[in-house]
Design a protein around this nucleic acid. Structure first.
Lengths: 343, 343
DNA sequence: CATATGGTTGGGAGCGCTCCCAACAAGGAG
DNA sequence: CTCCTTGTTGGGAGCGCTCCCAACCATATG
């Protein structure tokens, strides 16, 4: 097998120097005749520049890392991360970059992988996602000079770039919607309180209720994002005879819906359900789920754009991008209003 | 901001040469006293070798690529790919390699990303997954000298390394199980016939039926892996009054179950359901799904191991790893047998 | 005619590492 | 005492690229 060819070889075949070929490849100034000749040789030989050599010389790799901690077991059961990856991937493709995935669990061994993330010459920057409160990962990143952006709202958001959705406002809208429907005994199935989304959705919902003069009293339970935890939480809450419930994620809401029907109750007649995410295809549940839709894919795309601008030095002062959410009204809340277009 | 330090700098601080530091880092032979001193400097300075420089010099990147074509929309709704990624990721972590993800749709633009996959100096090898029959991707890979293994069964499997599950035998087992339960009007919800899994599961099921002297006659429909396609297919098949059905994926089976109950029928009393994947948590459906379990995570791990051995030159003649499946008997088939341990 | 200008091109230096070979010291064998 | 071995170390060469500066040519200008 013959040796891979390099810039020099291509140059020799085209009768020009290494530098000229490099200029053709990278879009520098070259006379059109020379350019044509060089391009012909490249097409003919199938020459591709060596990524590692390029990285070494230019001090930039064209790779961005995506860090997902606590990626154990159930992670991918929730479509959230899949969507996020899809958004990030399509954005990296668009700017001709490569996506490196760093998944790890909580084991001490696995955490040591973190250090691989900041290996110089491996990635140009990283997107860190879904950390729990107090996770040392963000602090660790801050201690390096690796550019990074956070998807979500980290503890000390002030000093980091981040992209998030307005969980609080979205949940508040859900509360106001239930109140507007005349529901007076709302319940809450919260998401884990060690995550920013969990906290924000809980607070936003309670805030909205308070505005409407309502309260969950003791009708509150916490799930772990899984469908089954939603079912269990709902089964328990039913004892408090709620007439409505805000479930902090679609996935848990599917479980909650099941608990409702298992208890012989009817949604939306006996109980209104509003959830968060807008990620479960509407037709998958009966009744179709009213949900606060968050633009996951857009968040991913925006995170890539923000990161590239940080890498390029265009952004230097921490910036927070917050996406609005939109309430998609369907049948599960018992609203008589039409589903909005795009819901 | 001071310059990143390199081997030379570390060596200077420890009073040794570049080469010696390199040997300490890579586990060469160094006297214990020197080693101690160098390691102290490394710990103190937080030195990390530059990945790109290392790749260039050693001609190996420590990165493996995972290629998933047709990654549009619904891809991640099926937990299959998530599990596969999890398995692959944990295996790469174990051998201290990094995972690069190449997702793309079918658009002509997107397909061009393929060429990025084989960029020299970017990845050491790639795992190609889930291609449809006749996809030019495999041929394209074969035209390069990039090591690769296929997850699944490619068209001309003879000349490629691949890791697959025994879809055919698994589906056959499902058929025999239904036959053993005394069902005589079996139906089939097949998976897309442009995928090897779709073909193998269909053929295996038909083969098993034939052995048992049964036939699906016209009780056959094809879904697209999605839950809703399963529901639609089942709704249609019900017209043929089947007493049992083999659904080619868990995801579609969930939809099928829904169609059964929407038709006012009872599973398993009126109709036995057996599916394939073993990927949907049993408690998520009523009744719990009897399914042919495939070891997705293990497939991913094995693919990484096989690939590294190809990269290392340890494997040179195409090798096919086929994992067996196991029938997990639960309630949806109407079997009176106990669920097996581990089901 | 000399000089300035601008578009092209070539080649040196260097990115940080690995690989290899030579150098050296310290013993043990002859 | 010399020779060989073994263990340890240093440094040259080179991986394939980018970046920069100098050289060159042609044309425009004084």
């Amino acid at each position: 097998m013959e040796r891979r060819l390099n810039l020099e070889d291509v140059g020799r075949r085209a009768g020009v120097s290494r530098s000229t070929v490099s200029r053709v490849v990278n879009g520098g100034h070259v006379s059109s005749e020379t350019k044509r000749r060089v391009e012909a040789v490249i097409a003919e030989t199938g020459y591709r520049p060596h990524a590692a050599a390029r990285s070494l010389a230019s001090n930039s790799t064209g790779v961005i890392g995506l860090v997902i901690p606590s990626a154990a077991g159930t992670l991918f059961d929730d479509p959230y991360f899949g969507r996020l990856i899809l958004g990030i991937s399509s954005a990296t493709n668009e700017v001709d970059m490569t996506l490196a995935l760093f998944l790890f669990g909580d084991g001490p061994d696995e955490r040591s992988i973190i250090s691989r993330v900041v290996t110089p010459g491996l990635v140009d920057g990283v997107i860190v996602t879904a950390t729990t409160r107090g996770d040392p990962l963000i602090d660790h990143m801050q201690g390096t000079n690796m550019p990074f952006v956070v998807v979500g709202r980290p503890d000390n958001a002030v000093s980091t770039f981040c992209v998030d959705v307005d969980n609080r406002a979205g949940a508040r809208t859900a509360a106001l919607h239930l109140a507007a429907l005349g529901r007076s005994r709302p319940a809450l199935i919260a998401a884990p309180s060690n995550t920013s989304a969990g906290i924000d959705r809980r607070n936003g919902f309670l805030e909205g209720l308070a505005e409407a003069g309502l309260s969950v009293e003791d009708r509150i339970a916490e799930g772990d994002w899984s469908q089954d935890s939603g079912r269990i939480a709902m089964a328990r809450l039913l004892g408090g005879q709620p007439d409505s419930v805000f479930v902090s994620s679609d996935r848990m809401a599917v479980g909650a819906l099941r608990a409702v029907s298992e208890a012989g109750l009817n949604c939306p007649r006996d109980i209104s359900v509003v959830s968060f995410d807008g990620i479960v295809p509407p037709d998958l549940t009966t009744p179709r789920l009213t949900s606060v839709v968050q633009p996951v894919t857009e968040v991913g795309e925006r995170a890539v754009r923000l990161l590239t601008s940080v890498i390029g030095g265009a952004s230097t002062t921490p910036e927070h991008v917050v996406f609005p959410t939109e309430l998609a009204v369907r049948e599960s809340c018992g609203s008589t209003a039409q589903a909005r277009p795009g819901a």
